[in-house]
């Protein structure tokens, strides 16, 4: 299996690449991102791309990859402004799918990491969205709109290329040691926002389960759309209690307006689509991926607990992430120099 993976430029993405390296089936791993890897990788070949992945077509043809793992979708709108996000999500996905679907393309599997943001969050929602349910209201935030566009591209691609296994995974709010999301940032602060009078049902996925779910889709044949989220939901007040944080209330009316100056002052990490979740919550049905054979390692409550533990460790010893700087010459040396003795497994 020759794998091309996008989105290595975060700690979390680099961990995913490490996980892929541990898969025996993956003989070649090519990482593409606009940013450099954050962790030392053994055999992943890193290629720096522009934000819309316009060189992907050449890479795919040159490397003859058969599997594309597309994790570089921006689902956190605090990371990027509207236009840049559009470029990365929509145009980036378009270029990747164009490369994968080009005539004579060797690609046989495409795995896309999306988000349950596509379901939105309103008071009319079902308590647990299934994969085939539509969102109640049309998306308003740029990130949701761009994800909806990506979804339609992926759907068309799957239809036009029946010989390619297309897996789309929609992850609910992710928490973990390394991943950086609006909610993880909010929960890292001494006081955590809530909306007055609302205590929504929250659902979380552990980052290990995210990596596990993506690797599972790479290893197995699981075509279709799947929700990935820990079992069960728990109220936001309990999430804050488990993490051991106090809460402060935002006004229940004109919340987004009140949130704007707080956001500008750097006191609030939650974009408007996350504030909607803080009001009405969101639950998704995770049984389809379970039926496809995936085993979760954490429930929603288990995820929050694991996150609370890693926060406690962080508070004591500080940021324990290894300091690593990607240097092309060094990496090239280790990978390709004749002087390096590659350990081969004993027969």
């Amino acid at each position: 299996m020759r794998v091309l993976v996008t989105g290595l430029g975060t700690f979390w993405g680099s961990k995913l690449a490490q996980a892929l390296e541990a898969l025996d089936e993956a003989e070649v791993i090519i990482g593409v991102d606009t940013r450099e890897p954050r962790l030392p990788l053994e055999r992943t070949e890193f290629v720096k791309a522009d934000s819309s992945f316009s060189i992907l077509n050449r890479i795919v043809r040159a490397t003859q990859v058969d599997t594309i793992l597309h994790t570089h979708l921006i689902v956190d709108s605090t990371q990027m402004r509207g236009r840049a996000m559009h470029e990365t999500n929509v145009i980036g996905t378009m270029n990747i799918l164009a490369a994968a679907g080009a005539a004579g393309s060797p690609v046989r599997k495409v795995v896309v990491k999306s988000s349950t943001l596509v379901y939105g969050s309103t008071y009319q929602d079902p308590y647990f969205f299934r994969e085939d349910m539509r969102r109640v209201r049309t998306p308003r935030s740029p990130v949701e709109r761009s994800l909806a566009e990506v979804a339609s591209y992926v759907r068309d691609f799957a239809e036009d290329n029946p010989h390619v296994v297309v897996t789309k995974l929609r992850f609910s709010n992710v928490l973990g040691d390394d991943i950086d999301t609006p909610f993880s940032r909010a929960l890292r602060r001494p006081v955590v926002p809530e909306i007055f009078g609302f205590d929504p049902r929250m659902q979380f996925t552990h980052e290990d389960d995210v990596i596990g779910a993506l690797c599972y889709a790479v290893q197995e044949e699981v075509p279709g759309v799947y929700n990935v989220a820990g079992d069960g939901t728990l109220p936001w007040s309990e999430v804050c209690a488990i993490v051991g944080k106090r809460r402060f209330s935002l006004a229940p009316v004109m919340t987004d307006l009140a949130a704007r100056p707080l956001r500008a002052a750097g006191l609030l990490d939650l974009p408007s689509e996350a504030l909607e979740v803080l009001r009405y919550g969101r639950g998704v049905d995770n049984s389809r991926y379970k039926r496809a054979g995936f085993k979760y390692r954490y429930t929603s409550a288990g995820t929050v607990h694991a996150f609370a533990q890693s926060l406690r460790l962080e508070n004591t010893i500080g940021n324990a992430r290894p300091v690593y700087r990607y240097e092309r010459d060094v990496e090239d040396f280790f990978r390709h120099s004749a002087a390096v003795v590659h350990e081969t497994e004993a027969p």
Binding site: Y127, E238, R297, V304, H305
Partner: peptide
């Protein structure tokens, strides 16, 4: 691991609220 890590709950609010 057969069963996912469920942590421990601090409230008895179920999935329906």
């Amino acid at each position: 691991r057969e069963e996912p890590d469920a942590g421990e709950r601090l409230s008895d609010v179920d999935s329906w609220g």
